[in-house]
Amino acid sequence: MEFPKINVSSKEDIQYISQIWRKTLYGRLAEEHIRNGDSELIDQVQQLLDQWIEDIMKMASSNIDINGIPYEQAIADEEFEPLDEALARKVQAQQLQVEELTLKVAERRKRVPEQVKMLLDDAIKRQSALADRVEFESQSENNAEAEIEDVSLERSDLIAQEYASSIALLSDLRKNVSSNITRLENAQAIVDDILP
C-alpha cells in the first residue's frame, strides 16, 4: 500500500523543520553537557546530530514533494515555480478531456466509414428498387397506328425521286465494283507472278 506524499509549499518549510529539530537537540545537549563544560565533546555531538538530521531528511525525501515537485529535484534547482493547486487540477481535467476526445475520434474514425458505406448501400438499393417500380406509360397499338396514319409526308414526290436516283446509283456501283474486283484480282495475280 502506497501512502500519499507529504506536500510542502517551499524549501523554507523543510529548512524550518530542520532548524526546529536542531534547536531542540542542541537545547537538550546544552542542558546536559554545558554544565560539565567539555567543548570538544559538545562539538563532536553537534556534528553527529547534524549528520543524523541530514540522514533523516534523506530518508524522508522520497515521501516529500515541494510544491508538487519531488524533493531531490526541488532542492537541486535554485528556483522553481510554485505549484498552483487549482491550476494543476485544471490541467489534469484538461488532460483527461484530451484523452477522452482522442478516444472518441479514434472510435469515430473506425465506425463512421462503415456507417457511411451502409448508408450509401441503402441509398443505392432504394434507388434501384424505385427504378424497378417505375412504369413507363405505354401507348396502345391502336393509338400508335392512328398517329402513324395521321402523319403526312411532305414532298412525297421529292422523296420518290431521291429513292429512284439512289437505286440507279446503287446498280451502277454494283456493276463497277464487280468489274473493279476482277481487275484487282488480275493485278494481284501478275504481282504474285513477278515478285518471288
Rank of each mutant, 00 (worst) to 15 (best):
R126I: 08
E72V: 01
E31R: 10
N36Y: 11
P82T: 10
I66F: 01
V177T: 06
I124L: 13
M59T: 08
V177N: 05
E137L: 09
Y16A: 04
Q92D: 13
S128E: 10
F3V: 11
L173N: 08
L49R: 00
S10Q: 04
I14T: 01
P70C: 02
V177H: 09
I181C: 06
L153E: 07
L103Y: 12
A168I: 11
D38H: 15
Q115H: 02
E107M: 08
S9G: 06
L120I: 14
E137P: 08
A88N: 03
K110G: 01
L170M: 12
A93W: 12
M59I: 01
Q44W: 04
F80D: 03
E137Y: 08
L49V: 14
E162A: 15
Q94I: 13
D43A: 15
L158R: 01
Q19G: 10
E141C: 05
H33I: 03
L130Y: 15
E99A: 10
I56Y: 08
N67V: 00
E149G: 01
S179D: 06
S138C: 07
L96C: 06
R174Q: 13
D150C: 01
D38M: 11
L96R: 15
I53S: 08
D122C: 00
T24M: 02
S178T: 06
H33M: 06
D193M: 04
E107G: 02
L103P: 07
K104Q: 09
V91H: 13
W21G: 02
N143F: 05
D13L: 08
